[in-house]
Simulated assay, not measured.
Amino acid sequence: MAAASLPWRYPSPFTKLWQIDASHLDHYNHVNNVAYLSQAEALAWSHSNSLGLQFSDYQSLNRAMVIKRHELDYHLPSHEGDSLQCATWIISCDNRLTLKRQFQFICERRKKTVFEALTTFVCVSLDTGAPKRLPEPFKEVYGNACIEPSL
């Protein structure tokens, strides 16, 4: 199924397909909450990499985007054999210290959102962990990718 035909919250998502297998399930035979969070983390890194930022860039700039807050919404259970289209967008970037990512996972079979998350990231120094301003490459890459929806 084409990701473009799904009911996305915002246009032009960065997407990856996630095939649910037994390793993703909890004791209820639903996708485990932690599996959704792990998938969101992997999706964020894939998106950053596709935008041109690698972890080696973080290291050379002595900066990292670390999570300050997660808001997680589990709408419907997912099961073994489901195919989820997983999307992310950068929805705000203040070009100083923070950015926010929206995530939305849609079950292809049901064409319904099963999971959403909003994550706030803060830029910090890798060596001290102290908050530091976004370096120019972060401003350029993340700022240009920001969709800044009207809320």
Rank of each mutant, 00 (worst) to 15 (best):
R96Y: 12
Q54H: 15
T119I: 15
A64Q: 01
Q102K: 14
G143D: 03
K132S: 06
A130I: 09
Y74F: 15
S125N: 08
Y74M: 08
E148L: 15
L51G: 06
R96M: 09
G81Q: 10
T128I: 03
C107Y: 00
P131T: 05
L99R: 04
L84I: 13
L51H: 07
A44D: 02
R109T: 11
V122H: 05
P131F: 00
L53E: 00
S92V: 05
C93I: 03
P131L: 00
D57W: 04
S83A: 15
R101N: 06
K132Y: 02
N49E: 11
E116R: 07
F103Q: 04
P149E: 10
D82Y: 09
G143M: 09
H47I: 09
E108V: 14
G81H: 12
E108R: 07
L151D: 14
E136P: 05
K100W: 10
T98N: 12
G129V: 08
Y74A: 06
Q104F: 07
R133S: 11
G129Y: 08
E140P: 02
S150Y: 10
E71A: 10
D127F: 04
S50L: 01
Y142V: 02
D82V: 07
W89S: 00
P77F: 09
A145N: 11
I67R: 12
D57M: 06
P135E: 02
